[in-house]
Amino acid sequence: MGSFIQLENFPKIVPYAQLFWQGLAVTVLLSVFTVAIGFCIALVMALMRLSNIRPFRFLGVDANGIPRETGALAFISKFNPVSFIATAYVEILRSTPVIVQIFIIYYGIFGVIDLPNFTMFGFIKFERFFPGVVALGMNSGAYLCEIIRSGIQSIDGGQTEAARSLGLSQVQNMRYIILPQALKNILPAIANEFVVIIKESAITYTIGVQDIMSAVNAVRGATFIIIEPLLVATAIYFCLCFPTSKVIAYFERRMSHGDKR
């Protein structure tokens, strides 16, 4: 009867150390690219959700020029297709499992689109890494969208009024007044999302991305030991995420000091 952890199994993992190092690099790269893509998607989606494009606006006014408040026409006049698309994107991506999304992207989208077959840095298979990044990026884009949207909405409406009254356009107002303040406020939330992505990226081993989890699988396949490589993976993920969240907490404290000055 063997015990839960067998110490003599750890030396058996050592020959595969290279896989774990490469897996670590893949996980970090995966997370960085995911946050970058996710942030870009999120920014666009957030601006779309907050847009005020109403193509049927004219239906909302009756013959006497008085705005309608109720009825089907008033409802149609308030319809914003741009915001609707972004809202649908966010709600669908947030209400379905990541693994389903990853499989749809990998087997569905990139089953049709052929990706170039090459390796980055000698060990990252692009045709697997890229769909992983796209799927995770789209998913985290939905979550980051809500973070950015709340950041923009947290800025006092007086800021926009002041900017517009000075003659700044809607775009200039966003660019110079609202976004700089909103992004500063949500930086801790974005950094937290980064930690979440590091952990979530483990799921990409299911489509053959060679991250830390896939190193565990490789060791299991070759040596039939599972608990010990899993513990190594646990340690690596912990060493990635714990210091990162501590660093975030440090900057969060420093930034709040700046506000109280």
Binding site: D156, G158, Q159, E161, A162, A163, P180, Q181, K184
Partner: peptide, 11 residues
């Protein structure tokens, strides 16, 4: 325009 709550840009 000048507002009741100043609305200077804090950043």
């Amino acid at each position: 325009m000048v507002f009741q709550h100043f609305n200077l840009f804090p950043h």
